[in-house]
Design a protein around this nucleic acid. Structure first.
Lengths: 347, 347
DNA sequence: CTGTTAGCGCGTTCAG
DNA sequence: CTGAACGCGCTAACAG
């Protein structure tokens, strides 16, 4: 077998004695072709192992059938879920998905967005790091729509789909208040993301509504590592007046809290009631099962993809002057499990 | 601001009073350009918001700087880890990564590989479903190298990088044997993947070496869902002669086993010693901490990417006649934790 | 129903 | 050090 090069549409056209246009139309079903020539084309294509080049096609159609997904970390189960959800939705449209992990670094976010811009993806789904990057304007200039997921961008560069963090933080706190807790702590990452601030705001709001003067030292922020979360929890529980309940504002925090409880040999919920943000299978399997706030991941994906499609198929990104992008806020669900106890009134 | 279209290399050339060739060379640093014109070009580019089109570039260079990664499921933490590792390695080369989840369905695998083929990715990393797909030959025909990860392809269509499943299965079983267990069960998915068969083979080998006549009914295979794993475990533990130790051959199995233990109120390791394949943070945090087999994920990624790069930069896929592709087998690590107890001789 | 042809935006010879 | 011109593989007008 001699070194056969990859064959092009022209090779097929020659082999089938038709024009390249006909071949194109056979493959794209974009205008009627007589059955005879159609078969001839398909035969020739099969013989030559022909596969149309999406690159060449993209050059003329100005569509890549690809979208970029920029998240903090694919390894984080929450984002893995987002990616999976988006992939399934896009799959049906023949679109593929290039994934990028920023590790919460604005430089990496900018780098990846530039990459996606050069590749001329049809659109991007971004969980922004929070920095106000010039690349957002560039994307807009190049008519590449962006939809923000999970967190709000620093400026309204596009529609946003997020969990109702305020309400979720409120609901979790309220749930604990209803069980008699007054000294409730919350542990989150030390970062100005809308997720964090929202959850903390809901927490404070619930306390205020219950006429509890919030103790600022019970709202703890740490670096986004399990170890930091562990140390933060240890410090919290070592106080003379430790909290009776604790909310972990994301999954990494949850791991740290559980590690701390284990290290101290503290029992949950007898010695500390606990609510975890981000639900995962294992939370239901430990002793005690952990109460958790579950994101509406499927809805987030569906909504984000819908918005992106609308922007991609619709006219331009900027409709008339300054567009007013929607912020879609989806409710989270509190999954009740055994990790929250009623506090005796006596306390 | 009027509707300004996206500017091309020609616009930049005009604006800078140079030829398109010069602009190209400025951006790619591919031949000396006088500092004056260089600046003029960069200025013009900045003014026009110019970004080179990777599509047009790919059409001439025949390189997309993109690789496809086909796995069973991005949501599976093992594969998420693979993707993250590969992404980090590729990132430094300016390559991006399109991810595809097959859900173990050969049709989906074929579909995605065709998609990647049309997109002319520089190479693919595949965790095959096990089916012998014609698309493998097509990839080869189109000189798109494939490297297989985690599982072996049905035919040697490319190099493979995998965990040493036999040794890992052997080590886990041996570990339990050393602690006095003789009735050891293993629970895996019901599927003819090299991962499963390897782990089961190692299990049988260890038993044979210990002169234990293996009880086939202790090697259980079920569908790859937590519920099926749960049922399988329940059945195993409901026997008149239940095993004293159990190995879960992957993470889904682990979830099912833990759920079953919880449902039965069985204590680990007092009533059942347990080893989990696939290590995750939470395994160390439950009571008791779960002994686990940890894959050398980082090494798998490094090795797979190295092999892929070699194939992409090297000449063609088929060097001389039938290439002989290596199968790289990387050792897993047994992480000792408290979930395995010594069995009293008396038993 | 089918063919011709002109780009799409870039890299890359070959001349100068 | 620079420019002109061709081609990558395909789609989209326009003819027929």
């Amino acid at each position: 077998m001699r070194k056969q090069s990859v064959s092009t549409i022209r090779d097929v056209a020659r082999a089938a004695n038709v024009s390249t246009a006909t071949v194109s139309h056979v493959f794209n079903d974009t205008r009627p072709v007589s059955e005879a020539t159609r078969q001839a084309v398909l035969d020739a294509a099969r013989r030559l192992n022909y596969r149309p080049s999406a690159i060449a096609r993209s050059l003329t159609t100005r569509r890549t059938y690809t979208v970029g997904v920029v998240v903090a970390d694919v390894l984080n189960p929450f984002f893995a879920g987002i990616i999976r959800g988006v992939e399934d939705l896009l799959w049906q449209q023949g679109r593929s998905l290039v994934v990028c992990s920023t590790d919460e670094q604005p430089e990496k976010e900018a780098y990846y967005l530039h990459l996606l811009l050069e590749r001329r993806v049809d659109g991007v789904l971004v969980a922004p790091t929070g920095a106000d990057l010039p690349v957002y304007a560039e994307l807009q200039h190049h008519h590449i729509p962006a939809v923000f997921i999970d967190r709000r961008p620093p400026q309204p560069w596009g529609p946003t789909v997020e969990t109702d963090n305020v309400r979720a933080g409120y609901a979790a706190t309220r749930y604990l208040l209803d069980r008699g807790h007054t000294r409730i702590a919350i542990l989150g990452r030390h970062q100005a993301l809308s997720t964090v601030t929202g959850r903390f705001a809901g927490y404070r709001q619930a306390l205020a509504e219950a006429d509890i003067t919030p103790d600022p030292s019970l709202a703890v922020t740490v670096d986004s590592h399990q170890e930091a979360a562990l140390q933060g929890t240890l410090a919290l529980l070592a106080r003379r007046d430790p909290p009776t309940a604790l909310i972990a504002a994301n999954h990494v925090m949850t791991l740290g809290v559980v590690a701390a409880m284990r290290e101290l040999g503290r029992q949950c919920p007898r010695e500390l009631s606990f609510i975890a943000f981000d639900d995962l299978p294992w939370l239901a399997l430990v002793a005690p099962p952990l109460t958790a706030v579950r994101h509406a991941t499927a809805e987030i994906c569906r909504c984000a993809v819908d918005l992106l499609m609308a922007a991609m198929n619709g006219q331009s990104t900027e409709r008339n002057g300054t567009a007013n992008y929607p912020i879609v806020t989806l409710p989270a669900e509190l999954i009740e499990r055994a990790s929250c106890a009623h506090l005796d009134k006596a306390c």
